[in-house]
Nucleic acid binder design. Sequence first.
DNA 1: CGTCTTTGACCTGCGC
DNA 2: GCGCAGGTCAAAGACG
Length: 191
Amino acid sequence: MDYHQNPKPSCNYSYIKEGLDPWTIEFQPSDYLMLDDGFGEDDSSSQNMVSSEQVASGSSTGYSGATSRNNSIKCRNGVKKNKREVEHRVAFRTKSELEIMDDGFKWRKYGKKSVKNSPNPRNYYKCSSSGCNVKKRVERDREDSRYVLTSYDGVHNHESPCMVYYNNQMPLMASNAWTLQPSSLHSSSFS
DNA sequence: CGTCTTTGACCTGCGC
DNA sequence: GCGCAGGTCAAAGACG
């Protein structure tokens, strides 16, 4: 049973960046987990991230899909949201042999879907904590299967189950570590 | 027995 | 209106 509690892999992470070579900045999981939600609001910063829609829509990998055709995000109830209205969505690419990396939370897989023009399926996860609606998408980079594309949608309304374990070393690690404010979402592509 | 993964079916939006 | 594609649901089975 893949319960996503494997030890933190000794892999290198790469932010999905804008303007610069998107795959050159590497960091460790702990670095990312300690980011605050004010992160990325300063455009002069070299640590901007982009929405996962840019990843999925092909800005960096060539993907295309229904949810990205009109720069809008569809919801189950049919309500559409503009890209920039989607809150708390982050994506990054990770060089790892493991598709599942321990981010301190427990995830339940609820779907798997093959993606057009990609030999690798996309996996869908929900946070297994009751009341927490954070979702996660994981897929291998179609152009370089050594990399894993991970995108998070939402903000955890609870602390990480690993909080106690890591608390001594990572006091800033918080449930909103994944937060990405809309103001930090950029609409331009990597082209 | 509870919780998880698997997987086909279904829903929705978009382009033609 | 139809087909395509992504995202989600839910039943069935597996596992500890």
